[in-house]
Design a protein around this nucleic acid. Structure first.
Length: 468
RNA sequence: GUCCCCAUCGUCUAGUGGCCUAGGACAACGGCCUCUCACGCCGUAAACGGGGGUUCGAGUCCCCCUGGGGACGCCA
């Protein structure tokens, strides 16, 4: 059975690149009917926070990337990690190294000057422990092979090989006895039964070291799949260090999780010419062989366009629920009691005009505002003397209107326009300003119908009473 | 610096030696529709980084160059 995992370190929010890694792991597992596990890599106690853990949980839930079983805390498994390091020590596959951090820094500096690679030289590898200086807590290093090469058959990158003399003896246990990431990852992946390690390209070089560790432990080595990194629009690495946003930031900008998922899926993966891909189809179609090898840049326009599509596809009730809180905030809580009823009716034609939930809310406020509604300066220009004359005429005509349906209202407006020698466009804009406070909106007559006779007439009166 | 990876329109990509005078999508631009704004529809512009091979034939295979990215922590 396929078992994948997503293993973020809780040092910040779930950023968009991490979300993509999670998605691919999730899809791969679901496609193969396997399991997708979550492991929090919190061994760095200084940088790990509980807030970050909940941000990651929240982000994954928002995206609908549910994990199987309980999330594993790497930190809590430290005793197990140390146990294996000690086992390797006992087997002579690892050794104590008494170099101080300063000593290592010097070595690196020297190598940099000499133009050679900055690797640990293995000076304690075969040295007699009796030489150990006093007062230094040694680290434990893996006695890695020094000759030959390590070859990985990566499911995405293909065969990747590196000479073993390019890999130094990695630290397994720190001076204080705590396990390093390299050790923890290997032990946890093994213990959790991970069959496929799907992660970012930036881990490719780690994979070689981990491969060596797996070998030293005599464990079966999982399949590796290193996916290309996500870059910013400038082409540079998109990481949390470079200000990449967390998924919740996209939620707050008014993006739908469906859109984010679809967008992320198509970054580095494709299925012919298909662009709009449902979750069900993604599960059916997704596999690692269609993942590309080159890095992709983050493109807000594309995400936005996808979002506009998914807003169109969303149910009206979901949309209203999403939009109401945003509107309430915009109105400082002064939401008209009829707001939700009006929105339920009006959202359908509003939703194809918005690319984000925020935009949808902005375009919808006029349904939720108390009178007199706010009118934008631009719209106000349509309520000059001529404009008010038109509103006045329409107001009179409407007064005697019996049938308050969208169709009847439009007919009435067209008749009025014809009588007075206007075209519909000329009379529509002043009315729109009075009714919506804006220069752009869905059909005027739909709005009148939804607002109802009383409110419509009142808004018209409000406009007439305004002095410009 | 050392090692590794990558390279098709501005962006995401299709393309697995002939179907490619390179397809789709987003963005851009023009038009149609129209009560405004959108939607929708129609159309335009836009790419195989360069050089060598291999082959009857190369975007597709190989090599070099160039460009980009990543990794080189007692971080993960």
């Amino acid at each position: 059975m396929v078992v994948t995992r997503f293993a973020p370190s809780p040092t910040g929010f779930l950023h968009i690149g991490g979300a993509r890694t999670a998605l691919f792991n999730w899809l791969f597992a679901r496609h193969h009917g396997g399991k997708y596990l979550l492991r929090i890599e919190d061994t760095d106690r200084k940088r790990s926070t509980d807030e970050a853990v909940s941000a990651i949980f929240g982000g994954l839930k928002w995206l609908g990337l549910d994990w199987d079983g309980e999330a594993v805390s790497q930190f809590e498994r430290r005793a197990r990690h140390a146990e294996l390091a000690n086992q390797l020590l006992a087997e002579g596959k690892a050794y104590h190294c008494y170099c101080t951090p300063e000593e290592l820094t010097e070595m690196r500096e020297a190598a940099r000057k000499a133009g050679t690679s900055w690797l640990y030289d293995g000076r304690w590898r075969d040295r007699d422990p009796a030489d150990a200086p006093a007062g230094i807590d040694p680290v434990v290093r893996l006695k890695a092979p020094q000759e030959g090469e390590t070859v990985i058959q990566d499911l995405i990158q293909g065969e990747v090989r590196v000479a073993n003399d390019q890999l130094d003896d990695m630290i397994l246990l720190r001076g204080d006895g705590t396990p390093t990431y390299m050790l923890a990852v290997v032990v946890d992946d093994h213990d959790m039964g991970i069959t496929h390690v799907v992660r970012g390209d930036d881990h490719l070089t780690n994979a070689f070291r981990q491969y060596q560790l797996f070998q030293a432990l005599d464990w079966e080595i999982p399949a590796f799949a290193h996916m290309p990194l996500l870059h910013g629009s400038d082409g540079a690495k998109l990481s949390k260090r470079h200000g990449a946003l967390g998924v919740e930031a996209y939620r707050d900008m008014g993006f739908l999780p469906e859109a984010v998922n679809n967008y992320l899926l198509r970054l580095g993966w494709s299925h012919g010419d298909d662009e709009i891909i449902s979750r069900e189809q993604a599960i059916e179609w997704f596999d690692l062989d269609a993942v590309g090898k080159s890095a992709a840049r983050f493109d807000m326009d594309r995400l936005t366009s996808l979002n506009a599509h998914y807003i169109t596809q969303a149910t009206n009730t979901d949309l209203v629920d999403l939009v109401m809180p945003v509107i309430a905030e915009k109105l400082d809580g002064n939401v008209a009691p009829e707001a939700k009823t009006r929105l339920n009716e009006g959202i359908n034609s509003l939703k194809e005009r918005a690319k984000t939930i925020i935009e949808l809310a902005e375009n919808s406020v006029f349904y939720a505002s108390h009178r007199p509604i706010e009118i934008t300066p631009k719209a106000l220009k349509n309520l000059d003397e001529d404009g008010r004359d038109i509103v006045e005429l329409m107001r009179q005509k409407l007064d005697e209107f019996g049938d308050w349906s969208e169709e009847a209202l439009e007919t009435g407006a067209r008749d009025l326009a014809a009588e007075r020698g206007y075209n519909l466009g000329q009379i529509a804009q002043p009315l729109r300003a009075a009714l919506t406070g804006s220069t752009a909106s869905p059909s005027l007559f739909e709005i009148m119908q939804i607002l109802g006779r009383t409110e419509t007439l009142a808004r018209l009166d409000d406009a007439l009473q305004r002095s410009t």
